[in-house]
């Protein structure tokens, strides 16, 4: 690796760190301008002003905003996200198992959608303008335009309500057999995978079509290079940057999908937790969840950019 490359990557990291600092401040600011606070949710409508004041004091909500920001920031930097305002548990402990569940859901969806979409995208670029390509193109276009909650609720209606094949809720707690595993995960994973898949297929195909029309591909053909070598050695190395970029961007949109899917299937993940925390004004939990989402997003986009930098052909880096 040459120094020019390190400079480029270093610069990208610096940009990621700047974004992270910005995200931290924004998360705190937004959670603080949410109307109402946890005392409303905890004490209910009939609370006396004294009780509210005492509660606010106990929770540290009566301190100036800057003090609270520093206390919170200090905690975040040490991996300590504070305690849930609702049940007093450490936020980290509350999030831990939920994050695990969400990662499982997202990971399973990605494990299915990435290879499938790369395959479909690359093959439909190779067989451009054939029936195969047209069918994939129409199907992905359709899927891109359907929002995930429609797919998810349709799936519930068909498989749970009509066919009684699968439970409508994702019962992750009692998975002991493959049957139960499939029952719990099939619909959430499939709905999530479908949504991201369409996007990735389209972007992969576009990157590959672009590369396959390059003069050096025709040149390789005229050298007597066979189809497998043409795709693997000549086309993929040039298309890989845009493809990985497309994959990373689609995976980051998977995060948004997770929120909807978890709510529809009452899946016990971090997105569901965050939605509950917002409605109960559990600010530390909301903050921690928001941070987790933002950091994941940042990691994915940074990863995509670094791959793009690394895949740039030599002599074209500037």
């Amino acid at each position: 690796m040459n120094s020019q490359l390190s400079v480029l990557i270093g610069r990208r990291f610096l940009a990621a760190c700047t974004s992270l600092a910005f995200v931290i401040v924004t998360v705190f600011a937004i959670t603080n301008i949410l109307p109402g606070d946890a005392t409303d949710a905890l004490l209910g409508q009939g609370a006396t002003p004294e009780a509210i004041t005492a509660m606010r004091h106990n929770l540290g909500l009566d301190q100036p905003v800057f003090v609270r920001f520093w206390v919170w920031l200090w905690g975040v930097l040490h991996g300590e996200f504070g305690h849930s305002l609702l049940n007093g548990l450490s936020v980290a402990d509350v999030i831990g198992p939920r994050l695990h569940n969400s990662l499982l859901l997202a990971g399973a969806s990605a494990a299915i959608s990435v290879p499938v979409s790369l395959f479909l995208g690359i093959t439909s670029a190779i067989w451009k303008d054939t029936v195969y390509d047209r069918v994939i193109s129409i199907m992905t276009l359709g899927m891109v335009s359907v929002p995930e909650f429609v797919i998810a609720t349709t799936a519930v209606y068909v498989f749970a309500v009509r066919l009684h094949l699968l439970p409508a809720l994702a019962d992750v707690g009692s998975v002991h057999s493959l049957r139960q595993f499939l029952a719990a995960f099939f619909m959430p994973v499939a709905s999530l995978a479908l949504v991201t898949l369409a996007q990735m297929v389209r972007m992969t195909r576009a990157a590959m079509v672009d590369t396959l029309s390059a003069p050096y591909i025709e040149m390789a053909l005229l050298k007597g290079v066979g189809p497998a070598r043409l795709i693997l050695v000549h086309a993929i190395p040039n298309a890989i940057g845009p493809i990985i970029n497309a994959v990373a961007l689609s995976l980051s949109s998977l995060l948004g999908g997770v929120v909807v899917i978890e709510v529809v299937f009452t899946y016990p993940g971090i997105a569901g937790l965050m939605v509950d925390a917002v409605s109960s004004r559990d600010v530390p939990t909301v903050q921690a969840c928001a941070l987790v989402f933002c950091v994941t997003y940042l990691l994915l986009t940074t990863f995509a950019d670094i791959v793009t930098i690394l895949s740039l052909p030599r002599g074209r880096k500037a």
Partner: peptide
């Protein structure tokens, strides 16, 4: 055809700048 191309008959393209694969 593949076995003939590049072995019996070869081709020099107009614009070498774009006919060489930039990644190799």
């Amino acid at each position: 055809r593949r076995s003939m191309r590049g072995r019996v008959i070869s081709y020099v393209a107009q614009n070498a700048g774009s006919a060489f694969n930039p990644a190799l």
